[in-house]
Amino acid sequence: MSVLEMREATMRFGGVIAVESLNLEVNLGEIVAIIGPNGAGKTTAFNMITGVYAPTSGLILFDRDGSKEMQTITGMRPDLITKLGVARTFQNIKLFQEMTVLDNVLISSHIGVKSDVFSAIFGLPHYLKEEKAMRERSMELLDKVDLADEAAELATSLPYGKQRKLEIARALATKPRLLLLDEPAAGMNPTETQELTDFVYKIRDEFDLTILLIEHHMQIVMDISDRIYVLDFGKLIAQGVPEEIKNNERVIDAYLGVADD
């Protein structure tokens, strides 16, 4: 039933081992978190899954329906991995700055375009039909994330929390089955953070998603995750359900720290 599997995935940059022999499994419909101190290799793991980096060794397997026959996506091109059904957001927001909110979401529908570029330029009926469907779908999506009113605004003019939401909407428009969220709560104010948990549940149910996230905000992580993986210096030091992680000695030493009281 797993959607994603990393088998002994290792990423080496010269002498630095960013991620070492990582084994990780995400099952259909789960919300799984990766936590760990800065520089633990969390984002590197994301970059390996999405094809930004080709792993030095090891395997990454994916299947959008969570069936037994998984396909290797090790070292595949990012756009092809996205086409298979993996979408992501970025730690440091990477919206298309000179475009409107709507255009940002429309971009992600481009993978579905079947008309060639010349039918598009000459405005042939079959392209216009696609364009209309794309716009409708994108507006629907913006509506679902409460950004429909800002559709015509420049992406960069949105407040930080909304930019994060827009990034998620843009990822959703690629029709993913596995969504990777890289620190979705970073830079959000307390109210927005509160809403984020509900938002993640909402999109998971509505879009049939499996979610893998990186997050430093422990309350969110403990609330939301079915399972947690803990990385430290590129190595997996613990895995399990939130209760186990909270009480794990090694995790407390490396990352969580001891409560003051």
Binding site: D79, T82, K94, M99, I107, H110, T174
Partner: peptide, 20 residues
């Protein structure tokens, strides 16, 4: 859509590629 795609590449290659 093709025009939007090339403008997306100009704005951010990594993000454009991640959007397929």
């Amino acid at each position: 859509s093709y025009g939007r795609a090339i403008k997306a590449i100009r704005d951010d290659e990594t993000a454009a590629e991640a959007m397929g």
